[in-house]
Design a protein around this nucleic acid. Structure first.
Lengths: 188, 188
DNA sequence: TCCTTATTGGAGAAGTCTCTCTAAAACTCA
DNA sequence: TGAGTTTTAGAGAGACTTCTCCAATAAGGA
């Protein structure tokens, strides 16, 4: 039923990821996405109603891909495995890690369609809930303890990734151990 | 000698910092800086030859302001005081902390004039040297130990700042303690 | 085969951005 | 006061961007 698509949404988002990796979030213009995907601008606007919608989808696709593996690692291997996964995933998905490094705001989050913002809030809430559940299991009840738990499992591994991405080189394999060891120490 | 300046470089950079804090690095267009400082675009181009030069100066002014206090804290109070300073400075300078949060690349670092890139490299090298010196004093000789030392003093406090800035609220005072405690634990 | 539907491909309007250029203004010093 | 210098103030060129619109195209189903 209808002509088969040549430039589907995923292909366009792949092109956008490449633009972020090379030139930062500023490089993701609708014209640049079309050029990078060898598609006419009309096809881009056929998939995404406007630029905020494309940027929102770029962020959502990336963050949910990351979160899926993170939640699985947390479930099967506990907090230290979660910390390790943050680094491992970034090592294996450097361009997408650069998207996450930039943060949602860099992609104009306030301008996103409400529906996309809701989906993001739901995805984030799922991760928060898993963290709270695991934290409770481990006996972290007070706010201060949960804060440190989150620091060890999410923020610290992320800092390891960041300092590597900022240098522009590959992330060495041993950095996953660095993050895991540090997380273990912080969790006491 | 000559007409007194009404729109000096610092005032324009202040306006640029405000734009970053509100709308991210993307919001720093030459036209927006002029608007925010209530100056005509000609005055902006009188101070800065082009946009990359302005963005470079924005980054350099911010990062050197931060580094000055950081080096002083490191000198007088050691690594834990350094870690604490990262959070304290960000707490007191939220808009400028948002500039640092974005990273040099977000401001088009590759396009900066060579002279500015050299100045940045020199400023960064000064911090690296101080870190190496302090690390050696504390007996961190191996690469792996230095990596963890840097993690504890710079990257981890930065991660604490980041998770607060991303939420968009003020940074609570206790977060400085969180960073200091965590740094102490990591340094063992 | 013809109708329906989905998609392409690109021209072009309207706006924004960077940057240039010049006349006027405002100060200092002789 | 007048010469010299620095800065303002803003018009405008040219490039690039977002987004609209529509004819042409390619498939499936009756």
């Amino acid at each position: 039923m209808g002509r088969p698509p040549r430039h589907d949404a995923d292909k366009l988002l792949d092109a956008a990821v490449g633009l972020v990796a090379e030139g930062g979030p500023r490089a993701v213009t609708m014209a640049a996405v079309a050029r990078a995907a060898r598609a006419p601008s009309g096809s881009v606007y056929h998939r995404f109603p406007d630029q905020p919608a494309l940027l929102a989808e770029l962020w959502l696709r990336t963050v949910t891909r990351f979160q899926a593996g993170f939640l699985a690692a947390l479930d099967s291997g506990g907090p230290v495995a979660g910390a390790r996964h943050v680094v491992e995933w970034s090592r294996r998905n450097v361009p997408e890690a650069r998207v996450l490094l930039a943060g949602a705001r860099a992609f104009g989050e306030p301008d996103w369609p409400q529906e996309a913002r809701d989906r993001l809030a739901a995805a984030n809430e799922e991760v928060f809930a898993a963290m709270r559940r695991l934290g409770a299991e481990l006996g972290f009840t007070r706010k201060r303890e949960m804060s440190r738990f989150q620091l060890a499992v999410v923020d610290l591994p992320y800092a390891v990734v960041r300092r590597n991405l900022l240098r522009g080189e590959e992330i060495p394999a041993f950095e996953a151990d660095v993050a895991a060891d540090a997380a273990r120490d912080l969790l006491g």
